[in-house]
Design a protein around this nucleic acid. Structure first.
Lengths: 235, 235
DNA sequence: GGCGGTCTGTGCGTTAGACCACATATATTA
DNA sequence: TAATATATGTGGTCTAACGCACAGACCGCC
């Protein structure tokens, strides 16, 4: 466990740093543990740290005034939570919620900003990640408009699976529904079909990915666009 | 006409530059004229210039393999087209199409990148605009999931109207449908209702905004979130 | 074991919007 | 002034997803 916590290089952004830059930053990175449902930042809330997930996944989502919500993107070991801190706005009009419990490395906002200002490799990586995130959010917009709940569920499962080193997702259908911005029953039906196909198995908040290929057959092109772009920009 | 073309400060990003920086960049800005439907950049296409719209509006949209499309955001005199050039990726997996004919100032990619690397006010403005764009795209994702065609049409009309200095939008329902990712008939019906309300009048590709207040009553909260964030970040 | 809480499955009426088929109205050009 | 192309209006059918109401199923705890 501590082994995992002390392995910041499990985050792709940090792992891509040159050795000397990484050595310099190392002392400013502290391990943290996120539990499911924990709120990393709130609508318009000031952030003191940025977080580099290693084994956790954090969802970015917007909650409407009437309580309904929808996810616009998710960040795992490929990125960083808190881009507003280097983009200059400080805050963002959305929330970040832990979607899969696990570990992350945190860094003080001030340290990050100073490092960003050096215009080195770190800045380059942060901006490239941000561009990849833009693509992810864009594709979410398109997918929300044009594709079925089942396709979107597949996209979501695949994106999450890519960011974990396990085949088990701990997640109730209720929570998935909140992420996708659909009804819980809609998720039940879509998940039921995937289960009948043998793609996944689902038992009370535990999804096993049994057959990725089947998911990839069902998913819309949106998944591929996002994945290819992440690989191109950070790979 | 040339008067307009020679007034780059009609773009809010350029207008926000300190006098000395603006003077330095001035010689690198050339006026261009965009016609309706012109493609500014193509899926994964390399860009030689970035564009600062002054009286034009450019839509960012994704076209699916089957030909259907949806917009994820739009840029007018508040921003810049071609963020991939300073974000580091070079290209983006989407298209940029002129949604409202008019003028823009263009700048060579190399000049922009050199200027960006100076980490001055210009960089700060570009990053802040990018953050505002992220909010716009995010809200499009949420809106696509949760709101009606009529509300989305209102959002789209208001966002466009904010970026123009006229009450007339030149735009067929067919094209609006492509932007919103809905059927043309759906736009006809929604626009018909707005027309009955006296909010707009619609004649063969020419929309008159008659009563902004009525639009703002019908629109969902998404519009406000985007507008407030743009004002906060660039205002 | 029994009991309350939390998940998941299912059925049914309702609805927004898709898809299809034209009718009509306004431009453009011959 | 026809003839043609383009833009908009309208009505019908179909379907995915919603909203609601409950019925199981599994979980932990007393």
């Amino acid at each position: 466990m501590t082994e995992v916590l002390n392995a910041p290089v499990e985050n792709r952004l940090l792992a891509a740093l040159p050795a000397d830059e990484y050595e310099r930053l190392r002392k400013d990175l502290q391990p943290v543990s996120f539990s499911l449902g924990e709120v990393v930042y709130e609508f318009a809330g000031q952030l003191d740290y940025v977080y580099f997930p290693t084994t956790s996944i954090v969802s970015l989502l917007y909650t409407m005034e009437n309580g309904s919500s929808a996810e616009m993107g998710l960040t795992g070991n490929d990125g960083v939570v808190g881009i507003a801190l280097f983009m200059g706005g400080g805050t963002m009009p959305n929330r970040a919620v832990v979607q899969s419990a696990g570990a992350a490395m945190k860094m003080k906002a001030k340290v990050l900003q100073d490092e960003f200002a050096k215009a080195g490799k770190f800045q380059q990586l942060l901006l490239r990640y941000t561009q990849a995130l833009i693509t992810q959010i864009s594709q979410t917009a398109v997918c929300n408009r044009l594709h079925s709940v089942e396709q979107q569920l597949c996209r979501w499962l695949l994106l999450s699976h890519d960011r974990l080193n396990t085949d088990e997702l701990v997640m109730t259908q209720e929570l998935i529904a909140d992420m996708l911005g659909v009804r819980r029953e809609g998720v039940t039906v879509a998940a039921g079909r995937l289960q009948d196909d043998g793609a996944i198995s689902y038992v009370r908040g535990r999804i096993q990915i049994l057959d990725r290929q089947k998911l990839e057959q069902t998913v819309c092109e949106c998944y591929r666009v996002v994945k290819d772009e992440v690989d191109r920009l950070l790979g």
